[in-house]
Amino acid sequence: MRRFLFSLFLVGLSLPAAAAPCGNSAAGFDAWKADFATTAQRAGVGQRGLQALASARYATGTIAADRNQKSFRYSLEKFMQIRGAATIVRQGRQRKARDARFYDALEKRFGVPAGVIIAIHGMETGFGGFMGDSAVVSAIVTLAYDCRRSDFFIPHALGALQLVDKGSITATTRGAKHGELGHTQFLPGNALKYGVDANGDGRVDFYDQSDALASTAHYLRQKGWQPGQPYHKGTHNYRVLKEWNAASVYQESLAIMGAQIDG
Rank of each mutant, 00 (worst) to 15 (best):
D151A: 15
S138F: 00
F152D: 01
R149D: 07
H121K: 03
S138R: 09
Q94L: 12
I117E: 01
F127R: 00
F153Q: 04
R109Q: 15
R90F: 10
T125S: 15
G115T: 01
F102R: 11
I120K: 00
S150P: 06
D146F: 14
R98P: 04
K108R: 15
G122C: 12
R90D: 13
A100G: 00
I140R: 11
G111W: 06
G122R: 09
D151N: 12
I120F: 14
A105N: 06
F102N: 04
A157R: 11
D133M: 00
R95Q: 14
M123N: 12
V89G: 03
T125K: 02
G129C: 05
G128T: 00
G129M: 07
A119Y: 05
R148C: 03
R93A: 05
R109H: 01
Q91H: 14
A97F: 11
A157W: 13
G132R: 05
F152E: 06
S134E: 13
I88T: 08
L106D: 02
V116L: 12
D99I: 03
I117G: 01
C147W: 10
R109G: 00
D104Q: 15
A139R: 12
S150E: 11
R93N: 09
G111H: 06
H156E: 11
I118G: 01
G128A: 10
G122M: 08
A86D: 15
I140V: 15
Q91W: 08
A119H: 04
I88C: 04
T142V: 02
A105Y: 01
L143M: 13
V136K: 10
F127P: 00
R148Q: 07
A86H: 05
P155I: 05
F152Q: 00
A119K: 08
T87E: 15
S134A: 13
K96F: 13
T87H: 13
K96S: 11
M131Q: 14
R98S: 14
I88M: 05
M131H: 01
A135Y: 12
L106F: 12
R90E: 15
R148A: 11
A144V: 02
L106I: 07
I88A: 06
F153D: 00
A139D: 06
D99V: 02
A139V: 01
R149Q: 12
S138K: 08
P113A: 04
I88Y: 01
G92P: 07
P113C: 02
Y145E: 01
L106P: 02
Y103E: 01
I140L: 10
G129P: 00
R101V: 14
G128M: 07
A139E: 08
F130P: 03
S138M: 02
E107N: 13
P155G: 10
S134H: 14
E107S: 10
C147A: 13
